[in-house]
């Protein structure tokens, strides 16, 4: 589904954020990307739907080359859902309008169709009662669930999560993770940048560990948690799991 091969990316002439990154996510697979801050994991996931350009290598998404100038990027992006650290709901639109906007403007669905879809997804994340509120009237956890519903409304073939819980107060993390776990159980293809190792051990198939722009470890879940091969991953895990 997602093929990342030999991706190199520089900021400016000398600072390399991604170094020869190669990995893949198969259909129905859940892959967790972790690593210390500044390791390039968020940058990597943003390269997948071309929110960030990169200079070398290639990424193929469902058979379509992302970094091909001929690729219709808006159309491709519409097929991949993305959830951001800071939710990024559109503050001037009601919750239901947040869910409908791209359905209507990008997919060309009728308003009624979009609303019906939106209602169904809000129900699913348990927020149907809030459909007519504005984002700022919701808690962080609720906003992030809306953001997931907004991405799902586009009927994505895969979902990208960029640290979906790290801006949340601790008591709100689980309500978001629950939605993500359900999604994983349904067979959604997911690439998730997160520090939530509990989530990783529960639903991930594979875990990728990044440090300083490199993919240091790319292993099956049980291998990663059982005996990470690299020192850096071991150190990272001990820090994360110690609290």
């Amino acid at each position: 589904m997602i093929e990342i091969s030999h991706v190199n990316k520089w900021y400016g002439p000398s600072f390399q954020v991604l170094k020869d990154c190669t990995t893949s996510v198969a259909k129905g697979e859940v892959v967790v990307v972790c690593g210390p801050s500044g390791s390039g994991k968020s940058t990597l996931i943003k390269c997948v739907n071309a929110l960030e350009p990169f200079q070398e290598g290639q990424i193929i998404l469902d058979g379509i080359k992302v970094n091909d100038p001929k690729t219709d990027l808006p159309k491709l992006r519409a097929r991949v859902g993305m959830v951001f650290q800071h939710f990024e709901l559109f503050p001037h639109l009601r919750i239901i309008e947040n869910l409908c906007l791209a359905q209507e403007k990008v997919l060309g669905r009728s308003h009624d169709e979009a609303v019906a879809k939106g209602d169904k997804l809000l129900e699913r994340v348990g927020l149907k009662a809030h459909a007519n509120k504005y984002p700022a009237e919701l808690s962080g956890g609720q906003q992030q669930r809306v953001a997931i519903a907004r991405a799902l409304a586009m009927d994505p073939i895969a979902m990208l999560f960029d640290e979906p819980t790290s801006a949340l107060d601790p008591e709100m993390i689980s309500e978001v993770l629950d939605v993500m776990v359900d999604l994983a159980h349904e067979g959604m293809t997911m690439m998730v940048v997160t520090h939530e190792m509990g989530f990783a051990s529960k639903v991930a198939h594979r875990v990728i560990f990044m440090d300083k722009g490199e993919i240091v470890e790319d292993a099956q879940k049980k291998d990663f948690f059982g005996s990470p091969r690299s020192d850096r991953a071991q150190k990272f895990l001990s820090k994360i799991l110690s609290h």
Binding site: K46, N49, L51, P74, K75, L76, R77, A78, R79, V80, G81, M82, F84, Q85, H86, E88, L89, F90, L101, A102, K105, V106, L107, R150, A151, M154, L160
Partner: peptide
Amino acid sequence: LPRGQKNAATALGLTTAQ
């Protein structure tokens, strides 16, 4: 505006104009 707003719009498939 937060940079993420533009990213979110882009990620949903909206064109720059949209």
